[in-house]
């Protein structure tokens, strides 16, 4: 009796192991669809997307308003009137945006200007490093993207991001969106997931520039950092630029002309 019980347990153990193995193998199985996957024809391509913001041409927060509004509309971003808000693009003062530069005698115009904040799409993104499910990941073109379907809402990425670029959906974002939703072509988010700026990856695939760039009237350049002739490389070659918290080694893809 005891012997047969042991045999049964062994068998059960082996079957469970085989089952898990089988499940694991099925995860790596071949494509389900009989057709072919291709990049979207007409999409914009780059080796490393980057953004250059000419802060000299944005004197006040109103100057940034069209960019922020364009982004909010394009991505159905809610306005929640608490500090549990969701932000993709927003503005803040020099001290808050570049806290490492503790210069008390900065020239007035640089100090008084507001600065636009968004996800930096880092070369070495800490959020990607810490995410336990690969819900946030880096694409070969330098964009740090998110799959909201996979996010478990652990918020490790928010602790990891040194730029405060990420927002968590503490409440149902739909309650704070106008009816009908501003952009019917783009999803909203749901409760319990993290979100952030996606460098308008969906617009790039459609052959369009990011919404904020389009709304900026040429004050924000967007292009391929690896291409010496691109608008961003030209802007960086001819102007003085800084990035946020460079000492952390994240290598942000967003540059500020000062």
């Amino acid at each position: 009796m005891k012997d047969s019980r042991r045999r049964f347990l062994k068998l059960a153990g082996i079957s469970a192991f085989a089952l898990i193995g089988g499940l694991g193998a099925s995860g790596a199985q071949a494509q389900i669809a009989p057709g072919k996957y291709i990049p979207r024809p007409g999409g914009l391509k780059a080796k490393r997307w980057a953004m250059v913001i000419d802060t000299r041409r944005f004197a006040s927060a109103e100057d940034y308003a069209p960019c922020i509004e364009a982004c909010d509309r394009a991505h159905n971003i809610p306005h929640i009137p608490t500090d549990q808000n969701v932000k993709w693009i927003w503005t803040d003062t020099y001290d808050h945006v570049f806290p490492d530069d503790m210069n008390n005698h900065l020239n007035t115009s640089v100090r008084s200007r507001p600065y636009m904040l968004l996800c930096n799409h880092c070369d070495n993104p800490p959020c990607v490093r810490v995410c336990p499910t690969q819900a946030t990941y880096k694409m070969p073109n330098g964009i740090v993207a998110m799959d909201y379907h996979r996010c478990i809402g652990c918020r490790f990425c928010m602790a990891g991001c040194p730029y405060g670029a990420r927002s968590f959906n503490f409440v149902d974002p739909r309650k704070y969106l106008p009816d009908p939703y501003p952009n019917k072509e783009f999803p909203t988010r749901m409760i319990g997931v993290v979100e952030k700026c996606n460098f308008c990856v969906e617009r790039l695939a459609d052959g369009k520039m990011p919404a904020c760039v389009e709304a900026s009237n040429g004050k924000i350049a967007f292009g391929d950092l690896e291409d010496p002739n691109s608008s961003v490389r030209q802007a960086l070659a001819n102007n003085f630029s800084i990035r946020r918290k460079p000492s952390l080694g994240t290598q942000p893809g967003v540059y500020y002309l000062i």
């Binding site: 500090d83 808000n85 809402g153 405060g164 409440v171």
Partner: peptide
């Protein structure tokens, strides 16, 4: 949602 907690965008 976690809106019932005291956590926020900055204290996540």
């Amino acid at each position: 949602g976690l809106g019932i907690t005291g956590m926020s965008k900055d204290v996540s």
